[in-house]
């Protein structure tokens, strides 16, 4: 468990795009130092929900939430909370690798560090670059071309570069929205190994379409479902991963994880 615990506590969360309710009535607890997987059919609101956990949701015009998201008891949506600060504490990795194309590998890693007027010495930044890239299992592959553009890497390497960039700012929590769905199987395994490493230092939440991946990497699994198009997505059940995949308490979960629908 990390030095300071960071438990996420979601209470009765509704998420809207304009007048469309995309996610309804979600409550869950995410324990510090755990890996939590979100599974469920397409369109059931997994991405929408995970983005509410670091207020990336409100980047979409007209999007809003009702309810509470507490990080260590403090409401992320409190009136005096700056979303910029929230996002430094809770980092995010996206479905498609998105290193900054105009920056070198090195500058990509340092992108978050250099924000908000921060200044760092060269030696210090060298150390952060190496540490973060090692943390993302990418150091040996790129250490000789740190000044080359990040867009020249393979998809899997780009995704690990994005992870390095996210952990460089030392967040408490790392959110990953289908981080492997654009990658080949080898790169996917590399990321899964990495997640087991990262779990020592970070609380991780990962959306995945891949059942094996969920059962391999996660401690807890949350199953989301949707009753039909136009209906909001709901959290059906959340439990230890082993239980969800062997003996879930809800029939719909069993149908989904055994591949009978979705």
């Amino acid at each position: 468990m990390p030095a300071h615990a960071n438990r996420i506590d979601v209470g009765d969360l509704n998420v809207y795009y304009g007048s469309f309710k995309a996610v309804e009535d979600v409550s869950m607890v995410i324990e510090p130092g755990s890996v939590t997987a979100f599974i469920g059919p397409s369109g059931c609101g997994k991405s929408t929900f995970i983005r509410t956990l670091n207020r990336m949701h409100e980047v979409v015009p007209g999007a809003r939430v009702e309810g509470k998201v507490l990080l260590d008891g403090e409401d992320l949506y409190g009136a005096d909370v700056d979303p910029v600060v929230v996002r430094r504490q809770i980092g995010m990795v996206f479905q498609r690798p998105n290193p900054f194309p105009t920056m070198s590998i090195r500058d990509n890693v340092l992108a978050g560090i250099k924000l908000n007027g921060a200044r760092i010495r060269r030696s210090e930044s060298d150390e952060i670059v190496e540490q973060s890239l090692r943390g993302a299992n990418l150091w040996t592959e790129v250490k000789d071309r740190l000044d080359k553009p990040g867009s020249g890497l393979s998809g899997g390497q780009q995704q690990r570069l994005c992870i390095a960039r996210a952990i460089a700012v030392q967040p408490d929590v790392l959110l990953m929205d289908e981080p492997c769905s654009a990658l080949d199987p080898i790169s996917t395994l590399a990321i899964e190994d990495l997640i087991s490493e990262l779990k020592k230092n970070y609380t991780i939440v990962i959306v995945t379409h891949n059942m094996q991946q969920a059962s391999r990497v996660s401690d807890r699994t949350a199953f989301f479902n949707i009753e039909g198009t136009g209906k909001p997505g709901r959290l059906v059940e959340m439990d230890d991963t082993a239980k969800i995949f062997t003996n879930p308490s809800v029939q719909a979960t069993e149908d989904y994880v055994s591949g009978r629908f979705g």
């Binding site: 290193p99 908000n116 960039r165 700012v169």
Partner: peptide
């Protein structure tokens, strides 16, 4: 994609 990457790192709009 890239704008979201920056925001997710804790960039302000101007950053």
């Amino acid at each position: 994609l890239h704008q979201e990457a920056a925001l997710a790192l804790g960039a302000t709009r101007w950053e």
